[in-house]
């Protein structure tokens, strides 16, 4: 493949950077607003030069116990992801290596459960949670997030596992490896980057899940989305404080994503570079 000309490369670079900037802009704007005063945050034309202040963070942290929300978020996102991988990996293995006649339909059906708007099942689910005593519990949110993300987990793992050549498994079988051994000693190591990136994505999705996090909790199990929501107000100015709260809420997951981005990109492009 010939190298693209310098002009072309510049154009591609510019396009890439502008797209990135457009996507990043809301976060940048939020980051700026978090360090403004409330009047600066709503000023129009917008204030670009200002003396940064930490008063919003002080106000936010004085009012709500950030760590309470943070640990709930960690428990729900990590827990639901672990449970999801535990259930999803054997399912994806079965679908990839021992597909039945209806394997394709099954996969599409799994994905179709994502098409229903969440609010449509709010009342039934609320009643179910009430009867089972799961309202406002970490367990309840954890199980629900597992179920919400399971279709995506199975799909992603399935695509990764499908890339593994069947011949490797055949060779192992000839050497006398049982299915369980193949799964533990071959499939898992070979699909490790895929499993890792699936897990990362599932953690991010669970971390950001807001609808159920707000609707099924009161105070004991409230994760970070509820923390952000508590700073929105119908009366009075709140943009700066809410930006500060949002920054605190997304901070850990952004840092986490940053540290693991190599893994994530490798996983997402897995198979494409063979």
């Amino acid at each position: 493949m010939p190298r693209p000309s310098a002009k072309r490369r510049l154009a591609i670079g510019l396009a890439g950077w502008s797209a990135t900037f457009v996507m990043f802009f809301p976060i940048l704007w939020m980051g700026l607003a978090a360090f403004k005063t409330e009047t600066q945050a709503i000023a129009s034309p917008p204030v670009l030069l200002f003396t940064p202040t930490l008063e919003n963070f002080e106000a936010v942290l004085a009012r709500a116990d950030y760590l309470h929300f943070f640990f709930n978020s960690v428990a729900v996102s990590v827990g639901s992801t672990a449970l999801g991988i535990l259930i999803g990996l054997p399912a994806a293995y079965a679908l990839a290596f021992h597909p039945g006649r209806r394997a394709k339909d099954l996969l599409v059906w799994m994905l179709s459960t994502k098409m229903m708007p969440a609010v449509g099942v709010l009342v039934p689910l609320y009643l179910l949670f009430r009867w089972t005593g799961l309202l406002d519990t970490i367990t309840g949110l954890l199980v629900l997030n597992t179920l919400i993300n399971l279709p995506i987990i199975v799909w992603m793992l399935f695509t990764f596992l499908r890339e593994i050549p069947k011949e490797i498994l055949e060779a192992a079988r000839i050497d006398g490896a049982r299915s369980f051994d193949q799964f533990v000693h071959l499939i898992i190591p070979l699909a490790a980057p895929g499993i890792a990136s699936t897990a990362l994505l599932a953690i991010i999705l669970a971390w950001n899940e807001a609808f159920w996090s707000i609707n099924l909790t009161a105070w004991r199990a409230t994760p970070l989305p509820a923390f952000i929501a508590s700073f929105s107000s119908p009366e009075g100015l709140f943009w700066a404080k809410m930006s500060a709260a949002s920054l605190l809420a997304i901070g850990p997951i952004v840092a986490f994503g940053w540290l693991t981005q190599k893994q994530l990109v490798r996983g997402l492009t897995f198979g494409a570079v063979k």
């Binding site: 009342v123 009161a218 105070w219 508590s230 119908p234």
Partner: peptide, 23 residues
């Protein structure tokens, strides 16, 4: 213990809880 939400979110949240006897 405090649950703080925006007016419309709160109204929906409370209506769900009270109509189903969520407690």
């Amino acid at each position: 213990n405090w649950t703080i939400l925006e007016e419309n979110t709160l109204r929906q949240r409370l209506t769900t809880d009270i109509a189903t006897g969520g407690g």
